[in-house]
Design a protein around this nucleic acid. Structure first.
Length: 607
DNA sequence: CCATAGTTGGTCCT
DNA sequence: AGGACCAACTATGG
């Protein structure tokens, strides 16, 4: 009878051993066999020489299971949900509001609002299946043991998460589960592939270039197909909430409001333009997928960062971040469009390419120690960034005096989202382009405001833009004036996000300090009074910064050569390294003198 | 050891 | 719109 509850997933008779994606059994021939769902309906079997993540030893029946939602806030393509339902009488869907993620100084209300909407949507979908979401408050390692006991939990299922915070949190939960005699099942569904498995396939070393990563992906074949959503699931115990409260767990189990979490309500017009949650996420995804020609021709660099309402890209990133939509579902839908459309765009610029960028950065983030730091990070160039709190704050608050930069920062803070190229522009400006601030500071500010902020992607992209890793052509600097002109010569974007400049003539919109004073008066915007003067002289400073970057690169090379006491290879590198080192030392000297000039420049241009 | 190519620069020229 | 130039980096694959 329980079997009928989970019919969409399991067609075998109850006594048969059941496999799903991520679950392997060693066959008599020595291969591991894995059952995956094919696109619509049927099943396919995969054979592998090694199990991908883990092998389920047994399919024990469990009276009561716990389905722990963290990311993966969806019912479709949710293998943890499938595993929780298997042979279970009661399934308890839980989301724990971890105080770690509820700090208004570190995470903006815009993202929390999107999360709460996603939880509301998840709860409502679960209620449609005669279940509900139990929202708990507190640290997972304190809340879960109580629930294990109160609900007599025999199995906990949750989506595997590669972020360092999640990894250590989940390690602790595994220990606690073992103590409580609770089985743990943690399948992969946040990424296209199991990242650890991919790294293994790459010979234990994460590829450092996109090209070599896509070769790896071609080698291993397409990602597993997405699972369909359940049509029913075992109900939670009817007194589950009373039992939780008896254990001293606070809250009524419902999705809380922003204000109960210590956040203020968002003002009108503030927030991501679309509602959070699986329902809206799937709607938005299908809306974009229905424009097949657009999907097939999509090339990211050809989209305009200055487009807003509607934006030039899909804006699905927040839904992917929280797992409201499955990357595997999106991927398979894209592939089927490409198949039916000859001459469609390709990675890295295609939509599929965007998903592969995500996968690539997840892979490098897992394969690199101290990925979120400059110091101790083997792929990160060591650069002596200036750290001016004044410049950093001006950047965050949109007071740099460069309308394009300030408008983008305003969109970031008010909507929690920016077009990828606008992220490039402001990140380049903060780091190697103009302000020479540490990328970790910019990373923190993005992490605070972006609804889609993702640990691996955010760190990777900041290293990219600051030319600290992945990207080394530091002499290619975005101009805060020329770049937006290409797609928005009239400055519509700036005028929307910075209304103080709405009457400034297009001719001056990206460099309003050059407007004659009569023009400023007529536009009711005096530069230096109503809108700041530019904080730096871009034309001058970006050239100085290029030479500072060259000095840092050379210093790194010299260091690698000089201190490398390693093997034979090291010796040959030492020679060339030292030669290069001599060169750059002179350059480094000039870098210091220009840096003094730079201070003067700052004074001249600050408000 | 070497050649190659890299998600999306800016500027000036034709 | 497209190309040369700027001043020149590095992981990868041979």
């Amino acid at each position: 009878m329980l079997q009928t509850l989970i019919t969409p997933f399991i067609r075998q008779p109850p006594e048969a051993k059941i496999f799903t994606r991520n679950e392997y059994e060693k066959s008599t021939s020595g291969w591991y066999v894995c059952r995956v769902l094919a696109t619509k309906g049927g099943y396919a079997f995969c054979r592998r020489k090694k199990p991908r993540t883990f092998t389920l030893s047994a399919q024990m029946s469990a009276e009561s299971t716990l389905l722990w939602f963290r990311k993966g806030l969806r019912l479709h393509d949710n293998p943890a949900l499938e595993a929780a339902c298997k042979n279970a009488k009661h399934v308890h869907p839980v989301f724990i509001i971890d105080p770690w993620f509820m700090n208004p100084d570190k995470i903006s209300g815009v993202r929390i609002k999107f999360l709460l909407e996603s939880l509301e949507d998840l709860d409502s979908s679960l209620r449609g299946l005669n279940s509900k979401l139990h929202v708990m408050l507190g640290k997972p390692d304190e809340v879960l043991p109580k629930l294990f006991e109160q609900w007599n939990v025999k199995r906990i299922c949750y989506e595997y998460d590669t972020e360092p915070y999640a990894v250590s949190r989940d390690e602790r939960i595994k220990e606690l589960a073992a103590e409580a005699g609770v089985e743990v099942i943690s399948p992969v569904s946040h990424t296209l592939y199991d990242i650890d498995w991919l790294i293994q396939k790459a010979g234990g070393k994460a590829p450092l270039t996109y090209q070599s990563f896509t070769k790896l992906v071609d080698q291993v074949g397409p990602p597993p197909a997405a699972l369909p959503p359940p049509t029913a699931l075992p109900p939670p115990k009817s007194d589950a909430l009373r039992l939780a409260a008896e254990a001293g767990l606070p809250g009524d189990g419902c999705v809380p409001s922003l204000t109960t979490l210590g956040y203020s309500e968002l003002a009108d017009g503030i927030g991501f333009p679309f509602t959070g949650g699986e329902t809206t996420g799937l709607q938005q995804m299908h809306k974009h997928l229905s424009r097949k020609a657009w999907v097939a021709k999509f090339e990211k660099p050809m989209t305009a960062p200055t487009d807003f309402d509607p934006a030039a890209t899909t804006q699905l990133s927040p839904y992917l971040k929280f797992g409201c939509i499955s990357p595997r579902l999106f991927h398979s839908e894209l592939v089927s469009i490409y198949r039916s459309t000859p001459g469609s765009s390709k990675p890295p610029v295609s939509l599929e390419g965007q998903l592969l960028w995500r996968e690539f950065f997840y892979t490098t983030s897992v394969g690199t120690p101290n990925f979120d730091k400059m110091v101790g990070n083997p792929i990160c160039k060591q650069i002596p960034w200036d750290n001016s709190p004044e410049l950093l704050t001006a950047w965050e608050e949109g007071r740099t005096g460069f309308p394009w930069i300030d408008a983008a920062m305003t969109q970031l803070v008010t909507q929690g989202w920016l077009h990828h190229l606008a992220r490039h522009a402001v990140a380049c400006f903060l780091t190697r382009g103009d302000l020479f601030c540490h990328w970790e500071r910019g990373r923190d500010i993005f992490d605070k405001h972006l609804v889609d902020s993702d640990w691996a992607l955010n760190n990777a992209n900041w290293m990219w833009l600051s030319a600290s890793a992945f990207f080394a052509q530091y002499f290619r600097v975005y101009s805060p004036i020329a770049f937006p002109k290409k797609t928005d010569p009239d400055g519509k974007y700036v005028k929307h996000f910075l209304p103080v400049l709405k009457d400034m003539p297009s001719k001056y919109i990206y460099e309003p300090w050059t407007a004659p004073i009569e023009v400023q008066k007529k536009a009711k915007c005096i530069i230096g009074k109503d809108y700041p003067k530019p904080i730096v002289d871009h034309a001058m400073i970006h050239k100085e910064n290029i030479s500072r970057m060259a000095a840092a690169y050379n210093a790194a090379k010299a260091l690698a050569g000089g201190s490398g006491g390693g093997g034979g290879k090291g010796a040959s590198k030492t020679g060339s390294g030292k030669a290069a080192g001599g060169d750059k030392k002179s350059k480094q000297g000039s870098g210091t003198t220009t840096s003094n000039k730079r201070q003067k420049t700052l004074k001249d241009f600050s408000k």
